[in-house]
Write a protein that binds this DNA or RNA. Structure first.
Lengths: 222, 222
DNA sequence: CTAATTTATTTGGTTGTCCAAATAAACTAT
DNA sequence: ATAGTTTATTTGGACAACCAAATAAATTAG
């Protein structure tokens, strides 16, 4: 009983957060019901309970908005979901396309401490296997002013910010190239033939594939 | 909804299995209700549903017995529980005393494949951090004809079967002493002072604590 | 500005897990 | 074997999440 009382609540909050992210238009009863494949009556009932709990606030225009408290909770669920995805992919060798279902279950495991330890065990990944940012324990999401190196301009110097792929093999490869957060990189050239890049790192030129470049997130160097 | 439909059922099956293990006397309604801290009426209702599903069979003497199907299910839950415990202790560095609650949640994650991968990731531990055996994917539990080395007789030769502790540090220690499944061990002496043991391994004598000896499971050598 | 449509809410009902209290059945001990 | 106790079952009801269908309110279109 006590274990999964919150599953429902958590799913509503998560869905509200997700809808809020992707759609600018207001999230109303109907939209939520449709997104969650539930009857509007059911959703309304639950939204009222969430309003009681100050997790959600009904706007004058009848749209449903997360309160700050609700947003925090939603972010913690997203955090858990994405960290478990990293675990499943990096440690249990699932493909990124297979992990969503499982993460939907694991995200409801109720322990702040567990998720923090998991994060440490995974060495604080900034992104999940799909490249979505992982909120930190305070709910802060790494602001993505960074761009993929593959979309950067030639001959300008960039600072490596993070990586969109957290696979061990990728990270090992980066380590071998001496690429880590903070590393300065300049695009020397891009080959027309296979879209691979010639990069200048620490005054040495190296060749990387388009895929690798797309998974290196950079900011313009100041 | 679909995610946790089985939580209740699973908890009943697990409890029945556990009671069946430790107590020889029949498991009746009252006993189950007491163990699960539920009202007998509730338990009776649920036991009927489980009977419908052929997971449980009511005996003539009104005791409740798991069917083969029910036992298999229960074993799979126990398997998940114990593997997650190993994960929590070995990988996330929880203490063995802290993991039960969390494992109670994790054991309900519904994926055969996940638990099999987890088992592989943990390198097929035979015992959980408490020393309880972990059923394999077919529900087979390593028969425990083995005894703790600490309870073995002096001057007889034993064969190491497995370990009741799966902590990395313990296993590292064992490796350093060249103790592994199959190793022949003879107890040379036990010190009265601290209950530590002098063991003969490969014709060399080593000294181990009472704790270490209690976590080494052995069988009499043929 | 009314009619048609969409959106929001209410009503009445189902299902699953749970309980307290009443009753029935089965032991237990003298 | 009968009173007393324990065990088993039934009854009636609570509560949470859900739904379909009816109604009410708001929006949009003509």
């Amino acid at each position: 009983m006590s274990h999964f009382v919150n599953h429902f609540e958590e799913n509503y909050l998560k869905e509200l957060y997700k809808l809020g992210q992707k759609e600018i238009k207001k999230v109303n009863n109907i939209a939520l019901a449709k997104a969650m494949e539930l009857n509007p009556a059911t959703v309304l009932e639950m939204v009222r309970k969430l309003t009681e709990k100050k997790l959600v606030a009904l706007q004058p225009d009848k749209s449903i908005a997360l309160t700050e408290k609700g947003r925090k909770k939603a972010l913690m669920i997203v955090r858990k979901h994405r960290l478990w995805e990293v675990f499943l992919v990096n440690k249990l060798h699932y493909k990124w396309s297979e992990v969503h279902q499982l993460a939907e279950q694991l995200e409801h495991i109720d322990s702040e401490d567990l998720v923090n330890r998991l994060e440490e065990f995974l060495e604080f990944p900034a992104f999940d296997p799909h490249g979505d940012p992982i909120p930190d324990k305070n709910g802060k999401i790494k602001k993505n002013s960074s761009i993929a190196l593959s979309t950067a301009s030639k001959d300008k110097t960039y600072l490596v910010q993070s990586f969109a792929d957290t696979a061990d093999s990728f990270l090992d490869y980066l380590a071998a190239l001496n690429i880590q957060p903070g590393t300065k990189i300049k695009i020397v050239d891009q080959l027309q033939y296979d879209n691979s890049f010639t990069l200048n790192i620490n005054k040495k030129n190296v060749q990387v594939s388009q895929k690798v470049a797309s998974n290196i997130l950079v900011q313009p160097a100041t």
